[in-house]
């Protein structure tokens, strides 16, 4: 069996992680990867090729809104923030995820 990289996220998990990260405030794409990486103790490294399409998809669905602003080092950067719809979406997805993980745990421990 091929070795599975921890950073290979389950389908749909990335959206949840992005929404969670944005709960603490607006962030640009780089900031989001950094936050996830730090929070997962470097276990999860988000690939840019997945991050940006995911961000644009979330924006298109109205879960996040974007605007241009200045970064910490005074560079022009695109900031994403959670919309009210995104907030509701996060809560629903987080609850689902929790339930899902618990169920998997129960099976594994049985």
């Amino acid at each position: 069996m091929a070795k599975k990289d921890k950073s290979d996220l389950l389908q749909g998990t990335l959206d949840l992680l992005i929404l969670k990260t944005l709960k603490t405030g607006p962030k640009h794409g780089w900031g989001i990867t950094e936050s996830i990486q730090t929070a997962s103790l470097e276990a999860l490294k988000i690939k840019e090729g997945s991050l940006y399409p995911a961000l644009h998809r979330l924006e298109k669905n109205g879960y996040v809104k974007s605007e241009w602003g200045l970064s910490e080092n005074n560079r022009k950067a695109k900031y994403y923030r959670l919309s009210a719809k995104g907030q509701r979406q996060f809560e629903a997805e987080a609850a689902y995820w929790e339930g899902f993980v618990n169920s998997v745990q129960l099976v594994l421990k049985s």
Binding site: K47, E48, G49, Y52, P53, H56, R57, K60
Partner: peptide, 20 residues
């Protein structure tokens, strides 16, 4: 190198908006 295919990423994002 870490970013991977920049052009492909841009393309994927653009496709999303065209469909939209």
């Amino acid at each position: 190198t870490d970013f991977g295919g920049i052009a492909q990423t841009k393309e994927a994002c653009r496709d999303l908006w065209i469909l939209e």
